[in-house]
């Protein structure tokens, strides 16, 4: 066990940002903290990293108390911050050398550049980097001290799909080398793909925690039917469809969780025919539930609303 968090509380005035969070992360595990913006993810992570102090609760990292020996812990963890800003007039190579110099032990800059495919921009000044390159550099900086635990806070936010996939494979490589990874994200597919275990967090509390597959199985033995219709049927009507266990309507988009797909499907089609809205029914498909659906089911909200 490399991270042990117990009953963590942090308030900002009357707002409770972190409300009694507790969990453990094992060595070599890729742990994800998942939740909408403002759920308390970043506050929690920054307390674990020693960048903020908690109002109450215990955090131990690598067997050390964060409140007591933050500097010792920082030697052995790598931190990637959200929306990183760096010295603008030094090059990629120089900033990695600079940050490497802050630690007792650090990796050769070339290795880190290669890991993040930044070799070609090694001489480029930070201010001239593209958003994707900056994001990769900020991950590179988190890895320069060859950390036992890498904390990555929304590492792929603002990246195009290709760059995101590139970064995912970097993180997968790290997993392969047995590094512990602590990832926060609001991209469900990212958590699903990268994490051994995720904690879903909302309003400062953990509302579910397990492996992505287990979480989905725990909350769903049904499948999801998704379609668009203008105007959408009312929830009362949707719930009357056979097999329906839960419905979520947002705008013209409808998701029905159903344990009897054929029955629910034919009810939907009948309804459309009867009301003369067949033309209005679009993008109807059946899919396996995802973490996004777990979040929806638990909170009744979509994660990115």
């Amino acid at each position: 066990m490399v991270i042990d968090v117990d009953n963590l509380v942090k308030k900002y005035g009357s707002i409770i940002a972190v409300d009694g969070i507790g969990f453990r992360v094992d060595s070599g595990e890729a742990f994800g903290m998942l939740g909408p913006n403002g759920a308390g993810k970043t506050t929690t992570v920054e307390i674990i990293e020693g960048l903020r102090t908690a109002d109450s609760g215990q955090v131990s990292v690598l067997g050390m108390d964060v409140a007591r020996v933050p500097a010792k812990i920082k030697q052995r963890i790598g931190i990637q911050l959200q929306a990183p800003s760096l010295l603008p007039l030094v090059s990629v190579e120089e900033i990695l050398q600079l940050f490497g110099g802050f630690y007792e032990r650090s990796l050769p800059v070339d290795d880190v550049l290669e890991m993040l495919s930044l070799q070609d921009s090694r001489k480029v000044l930070v201010k001239n980097l593209s958003g994707g390159q900056q994001q990769r550099l900020s991950v590179a900086m988190a890895l320069i001290n060859d950390p036992d635990i890498a904390f990555l806070d929304e590492p792929t936010t603002g990246l195009d799909p290709q760059a995101r996939r590139g970064l995912w494979s970097v993180i997968e490589n790290m997993r392969g080398k047995g590094k512990t990874i602590f990832l926060t994200t609001h991209y469900m597919e990212e958590a699903e793909r990268l994490c051994d275990r995720v904690a879903i967090i909302d309003h400062g509390q953990i509302i579910a925690m397990n492996s992505p597959r287990e979480l989905i199985n725990e909350y769903f033995n049904e499948s999801a039917i998704q379609f668009e219709m203008e105007p959408p049927p009312s929830e009362v009507i949707l719930k009357s469809f056979p097999g329906t266990t839960q419905v979520i309507v947002s705008g013209s988009e409808v998701i029905i969780y159903s344990d009897n797909i054929p029955a629910t499907m034919s009810a939907i089609l009948k309804y459309a025919e009867k009301t003369g809205l067949t033309e209005q029914l679009k993008d109807l498909y059946v899919r396996e539930p995802t973490l996004e659906d777990v979040f929806l089911k638990l909170t009744g909200r979509k994660i990115r609303e």
Binding site: L51, K74, Q75, I79, F102, Y103, M141, N145
Partner: peptide, 8 residues
């Protein structure tokens, strides 16, 4: 803050 995330 970034500097503060290191042992510096």
């Amino acid at each position: 803050k970034r500097f503060g995330a290191t042992p510096l």
